[in-house]
Design a binder for these strands. Structure first.
Lengths: 120, 120
DNA sequence: CTTATACTTAACTATATGGTTAATTAACCG
DNA sequence: CGGTTAATTAACCATATAGTTAAGTATAAG
């Protein structure tokens, strides 16, 4: 099931219903039925309960109790950690222009053929 | 299978083996066997092939051909998109201190009881 | 006490995921 | 040609995921 925190978070984010729930929660606490409302026509209540469990296991939400309601609130911490993981590789996507540039230079040179890519 | 791009990317990132592969690729192109090396003792070659397919379907890597080798290279674009999705919610984790502050204020007041959270 | 509302649990189903071993394809090397 | 290396495909398996319906729990409200 991939126990590590990052994996749980990324996996939880890998579902559009769950991302939509998080977006809603970023605007403030909400009860389960409030969260379920946009999906009422396409999804049953137990399905939402399950999604909430996934989010809770990933630490993305926490839940309290208010009479028969179980208000959910967003916990940003795991989002922060995934953002930090990605940030570590920002150079990869920012340097893509540079690498395209390198590639074009290599192609227009066309002196010695390939073979300089692999080492093994 | 969750077709949308973001879901595919997040799901692909939800596995530590695949993240390790991406980390390796951020240091430059590599053949499949190079990528497989750190997992040789715990995982078979076909398992790596499958992980690479997941990464490829998410657009995170692209593959070329060099004799019997199939060098993989990282494509940062989807990482950028997931980072942007997360960035949209940066305020959520940055404001957590403020919200804690609010909470403490509310608790020390302790005048009118709860019930101001839910609307439904 | 009964009923309605909010939500969860249980049991089940279908498909996806992550892994395996064995066989296959493809290219190079002597 | 025959062998070796690189990687994929096929067939299979166990478990996880994402959903369902039906039943159960908990609280509020008449």
């Amino acid at each position: 099931m991939n126990q590590d925190k990052l994996s749980l978070t990324f996996a939880a984010l890998g579902d559009p219903t769950r991302r939509a729930i998080l977006v809603r929660l970023s605007k403030g606490e909400a009860s389960v039925s409030e969260l379920a409302k946009p999906f009422m026509d396409t999804m049953s209540a137990p399905a939402i309960t399950k999604h909430l469990k996934v989010l809770e296991k990933a630490g993305l939400i926490s839940r309290s109790r208010d009479a028969q309601w179980r208000p959910c609130k967003l916990n940003g911490e795991p989002l922060k950690e995934t953002a930090e993981w990605l940030e570590h590789y920002r150079s990869v996507w920012e340097e893509s222009f540079d690498r395209l540039d390198d590639y074009l230079k290599t192609m227009t040179q066309k002196k010695k053929g390939k073979k300089n890519v692999r080492k093994k």
